[in-house]
Design a protein around this nucleic acid. Structure first.
Lengths: 338, 338
DNA sequence: TGCCACCGAGAGAGCGCTCTCACGAGTCGC
DNA sequence: GCGACTCGTGAGAGCGCTCTCTCGGTGGCA
């Protein structure tokens, strides 16, 4: 009578309590339909009474699944968060979609080289079934290394260089072109841009959109200053721009945060927006509706990027095929700054 | 000669390759010092050659540890993120500190009742060694349920009601009182507040600080409108406030986002800040430096909250004792809005 | 030289689960 | 009425690891 179930109940405990075998209890737990109703019922009762919860480690050991997905943010940690709305939005989208599929989200913050290695170890250990990779800088080797490790991967944003894994992205260039068209239609002729980092595809493509859009202005010369997508860099870049050409009558900033920063510089230097200088941003974060004046911006479906990422990785994990890329539309949202 | 190591190498594979036993390989992997140097060396070489990575599920199964910590955000998912800087900052702080300890961060987004149950299951399953709980609303039952489940827990923000688990919080009231003192010192007499949700301790204590601070103004009557910490609610609350008393000469908003929203209403209605109405916020998010005018606000050490949370949970998980509460200081940052 | 203590290495059990396979009981057809 | 079949259940192996226990070998000391 050494019946001390001391610790947490196991399948065995439940089986004994319900007078069934471990295998049958396992069947009930996993929703098999081939168990006689009354037996299933008494097992379920035993489970409830004992407060049995399956041990995921034991389960993973045999199934080779973990039911969790890693979201890797390889951005330099200091700039990922702060109050940028892009990543939080993506996290939320991914999280919600995974929750529906009853998968777990594991967040890996990859700032340093050490964490790069840690992540590889983590993924090699198969602690996750798949990986969602957000926003790489430059020719990041991570996607390729992960693919080589045989783990399903999907990335947010087309990688720089050749894409070896499926990705979700948005129509950067065409969105920016719409913004440029709007500025030109407003009669603006000396249009500058605050570009994003040129080691990121989002930065490059938005700049490309600016350059393409500028062709509609006969004789216009590109006027470019680079920022890092954050507010402060927008403030600084706007200053440099105005120094280079005080006659600027419009600015396209590659992010709302930089546009907000630019607004600040314009205000400080006594330029009226949009009268003297029209400003357009990119992202359409919540804050864009609260700037002074409210920001005209290129909207991108941040939340949907997250849900689509989750959707793709779930399909890959399930062994299904997915499109090599999904490119979501952007659209110009006209408020008062342009 | 059935030597097909087909899949991932296991301890066994490494042991055979190095001509040692599984136990000895395990010793090397786990850094035991009792292994003869030359054997250890050849084992390490075999590990490198085979690309061996320990299977964490198998390890957890026997050690009963998982080396990962859950961060639960039980806020309604729609409001947790957006572009509020508080949670991202906390996530970053927790993540960095855990990374140093070589622990993994698992993010659980708890929006619905369903996810509440899912979280309990998850934690009961011991998929994590400990739990960090951020920002509960009302008398959330989660901390108590987790404690009852025997899992180490630490929460961010004093819980409403009796605290049954250790928590990290900041000096809400005294920070607000400093802000009020500043306003009074500026000669403001009709000071209103945009309070946070009153089912959150942060909301309540900041309101309490306002009420205490207002006592310094003879005959002053409290003027309170409630928001939800987000921008839009600040815009709306400011409108109601002005309707109730057009002569308001100062406003304390319980969050920077609400203060920013309030700024917008004031601008729209032609009130100059700070000349007509002084505005003070709470949080000191990055955006506070970029509002028009730059926001005077109560600074709270968001990043440190995160690192302290991580520190405490790590100690709990290690079986050490921790203080029942840690309360971090806040301080008034004076910019131009007041 | 012989005995004992000590240290490093291996054998083996077992963590909690899933899943294959075999088996017994019931059902059907000829 | 007997074999063939189906269906539900149990036995048992094994996932990859850790850790205790045991054992063989070496050195110190009498």
């Amino acid at each position: 009578m050494n019946e001390t179930p001391a610790g947490r109940p196991t399948l065995e405990t439940v089986a004994r309590a319900a007078g069934a075998s471990r295998a049958t209890v396992s069947r009930v737990v996993n929703g098999s339909t081939t168990v006689r109703a009354d037996i299933a019922e008494s097992i379920r009762r035993a489970i409830a009474e004992l407060g049995y919860v399956p041990n995921p480690a034991a389960r993973s050991l045999v199934t080779q699944r973990t039911d969790s997905i890693a979201l890797i943010l390889p951005e330099s940690a200091t700039r990922v968060f702060s109050d940028d709305a892009f990543f939080p939005g993506v996290i939320r989208g991914v999280g919600e979609a995974l929750e529906k599929a009853d998968k777990q989200l594991v967040l890996l913050l990859a700032s340093t080289q050490a964490s790069h290695d840690r992540i590889l170890r983590y993924v090699h250990g198969r602690t996750v079934d798949g990986v969602v990779l957000a926003s790489m800088h430059g020719a990041d080797t991570l996607p390729e290394e992960l693919r080589a490790a045989g783990v399903p991967v999907v990335t947010s944003g087309r990688p720089l260089g050749e894409a070896t894994v499926p990705f979700i992205d948005v129509e950067h260039a065409s969105g920016v072109e719409a913004a440029m068209k709007h500025l030109v239609g407003l009669g603006r002729r000396r249009i500058a841009t605050i570009a994003g980092p040129q080691d990121m595809v989002a930065g490059r493509e938005r700049l490309a959109g600016y350059l393409t859009g500028l062709r509609a202005v006969p004789g216009a010369v590109p006027l470019v200053e680079e920022g890092d997508f954050m507010r402060q860099s927008g403030t600084d870049a706007m200053e440099r721009l105005l120094q280079r050409d005080p006659g600027i009558d419009a600015v396209f900033a590659a992010s709302d945060l930089m546009a907000d920063g630019a607004l600040r510089t314009l205000r400080r230097l006594g330029r009226r927006v949009p009268d003297d200088v029209a400003v357009i941003g990119f992202d359409d974060v919540e804050a864009a509706r609260f700037t002074d004046p409210p920001l005209t911006t290129v909207h991108q479906p941040i939340h949907e990027i997250g849900t689509r990422l989750a959707e793709q990785i779930l399909r890959l994990v399930a062994g299904e095929e997915v499109e090599a890329s999904v490119v979501l539309p952007t659209r110009l949202v006209i408020r008062e700054s342009a």
